[in-house]
């Protein structure tokens, strides 16, 4: 009887030790761009605590998020993560085209939540995102389908003019090489100034005019736009 008790307490201790080890998770990260022709600017993956985030659906975008969503600049987001003892992984450091798979590894340390952002090009302020996914303590492979968000910070005029700074209208570029010119603007109103689900590109079939510099047969998507595969080791 006594022997059995000891065994039980031993196994409890080893379970506790095991779960303590799992808290510092080593993750394999794989992101597949599922779209037809939408590129992702540098993909930021961050592990952080419950109080920190890259974005929250339904809340106003931070300036750091706006810089990423309008121009692909992740530096302020990374600074904010580091400042709260989180860790960053640049899954890519240059725009990656539709269809590509990006891979990396991340040691999360003590951080229990995972987030991801990358601007979608060509869009005005669209981004693919994961907000505060709780990292499982159990080893295994987990698949999460990701949606396209709109930062709510810029009107979706769909005019490609190189504009990527916060407050500058327009789209920086189309890495897929299907950009039109001379558009008059697809929209003149941003009806939701919080982070929301992106309504999708409109586009048109006039490469030298029309309402949009985007091509409606090339630049559209439906959710989900990316598949994230996380392996907890």
């Amino acid at each position: 009887m006594k022997f059995k008790q000891t065994l039980t307490s031993l196994s409890i201790i080893s379970t506790l030790l095991a779960s303590a080890n799992v808290n510092a998770a080593n993750l394999d990260i794989e992101l597949i761009n599922l779209t037809h022709s939408i590129a992702f600017t540098p993909i930021l993956v961050a592990a952080h605590d419950q109080q920190t985030s890259l974005f929250h659906l339904g809340e106003s975008a931070t300036v750091a998020l706006q810089k990423m969503a309008e121009g692909g600049n992740t530096s302020d987001l990374k600074t904010a993560i580091t400042a709260s003892s989180g860790v960053n992984l640049d899954l890519t450091s240059a725009p990656s085209l539709a269809g590509l798979t990006s891979m990396g590894t991340l040691d999360t340390g003590e951080n229990m939540y995972l987030s991801l952002t990358a601007m979608m090009l060509p869009t005005n302020d669209g981004f693919v995102g994961l907000d505060s996914w709780k990292i499982p303590t159990e080893a295994g492979t987990y698949t999460i389908m990701l949606n396209a968000y709109d930062a709510g910070t810029e009107i979706n005029d769909e005019i490609i003019n190189g504009g990527g700074m916060p407050g500058t209208p327009g789209i920086p570029a189309d890495p897929s090489g299907n950009a039109g010119t001379g558009a008059t603007g697809a929209s003149s109103n941003e009806a939701n100034d919080k982070v929301h689900i992106h309504p999708g590109n409109v586009g048109d079939t006039d490469a030298n005019g029309g309402i949009s510099d985007l091509n409606s047969t090339v630049h559209r998507w439906l959710n989900p736009v990316a598949k994230l595969v996380v392996t907890v080791k």
Partner: peptide, 19 residues
């Protein structure tokens, strides 16, 4: 929206995707 259906009274801002 009116860009693709000329008789539509909707604007591009009314477009939605799930969820």
């Amino acid at each position: 929206t009116s860009h693709e259906l000329s008789s539509s009274v909707l604007l591009t801002e009314h477009k939605f995707d799930n969820p």
